[in-house]
Design a protein around this nucleic acid. Structure first.
Lengths: 199, 199
DNA sequence: AGCCTTGATCTGCAATAATAGATCAAATTT
DNA sequence: AAATTTGATCTATTATTGCAGATCAAGGCT
């Protein structure tokens, strides 16, 4: 109703989508029933602060009260810190998240291979390009490949996938204005966007 | 309970106090019952977003969800835009607000006097020094004087008060130690500054 | 000493958020 | 084509807010 709640609802929704989570997944993380999340996002309930807090926490968001006069400045900060999305890359982001999950749930036996290491690194890097990420299909393919590895158990396959990841990551890096990147293949120079290890 | 709500509760309370409002006054502005405000501020209730929104609106606050990683930057902005309070001036602010209300509810007959005009102006100015305002007693005296005017109807009194207001305002502008203005309507030993208000 | 304000605390009572769980159509995936 | 996923929409039941209005002790003020 109150225009404030519309904003909150919209923030929650877009934050969830930007993390590539489904309502059910968010439900699992936050403890809030999926049916309720649906109502919340469509601004159909006057939710309680506890619900909001649960969701915000699960989404790495913080609810703050700012003086009206500093609101524009804050908005500007958030805009520049967060990513501007072409609005068309939600699918890509979701795929990226799924792929990452697929990677994490790989058999432990593989977790020490060097291919695994580079894969982890490349994914980390790709996360730095969330704002320009659009290659939904490429990522989807990588995910299927990863899931296939579980069965066909091939370490060689994993290496192939790692190559793909590296290739994709390089593509992204090259499409970024050069002044935004300091060192080509080494450490990310900006915005590390860790996923949570709940603790 | 949830640490997030503690923050909210504290924010609401300090925001209210900084505006010099009592719970009942805030209740009148926001439509939220005083008894409920009390519970909310003591974090004894899991309030709904609508309640929070009402209160925030009445306090000129804005509810926003910000990414965790930009939270520090936002806090910094709010700190610099808002005022740093010595934490001891809540009383002074409250008094200022009350005095202002007393001024507004003066008989209309007086509303056109030049004394009234300067008073309005000085109050406006004093508001600009909220952050360093500490002279609770001086303001309290001004308020009582204002309330007294209603009865004794003296325009001359109003002029005296206006002088005091001007004096206080100049004190603030020059950041003069507060113990020098503790004397009510009597004239100070030092000479009066000319008023350098914005032209 | 009296009067007023403030914040906290009770009393019901009504409205509704929150829960668990099932279902559904549409879109995706296999 | 079949299975799965997704978001939305039901059902019922429970738990709690929110409201209205009174009351109270503590402090401040006249």
């Amino acid at each position: 109703m109150s225009y404030a709640s519309e904003n909150i609802a919209a923030s929650l929704k877009s934050a969830r989508e930007n993390k590539g989570l489904s309502q059910r997944e968010l439900s699992a993380r936050s403890g809030v029933p999926q049916s309720h999340i649906s109502k919340i996002e469509s601004n159909a309930v006057d939710l309680r602060l506890s619900s909001l807090a649960s969701l915000a926490h699960a989404l790495d968001l913080e609810l703050t009260m700012i003086p009206r006069k500093s609101a524009p400045a804050v908005r500007s900060i958030v805009r520049s810190t967060g990513s501007h999305k072409p609005q068309s890359n939600n699918d890509a982001l979701r795929e990226l998240a799924r792929a990452q999950r697929a990677l994490d749930t790989l058999p432990k036996a593989l977790h020490e291979s060097s291919a695994m290491e580079t894969l982890q690194r490349q994914f980390q890097e790709m996360n730095n390009f969330r704002n320009i990420l659009q290659e939904t299909d490429a990522i989807r393919n990588m995910r299927s490949a990863l899931e296939a590895v579980e069965n066909s158990g091939g370490l060689k396959n994993l290496e192939k996938i790692a190559e793909d990841a590296q290739r994709l990551r390089n593509m992204l890096a090259h499409s970024v204005p050069s002044h935004m990147i300091n060192e080509p293949t080494s450490r990310p120079a900006y915005s590390l966007d860790e996923d949570d290890s709940d603790g």
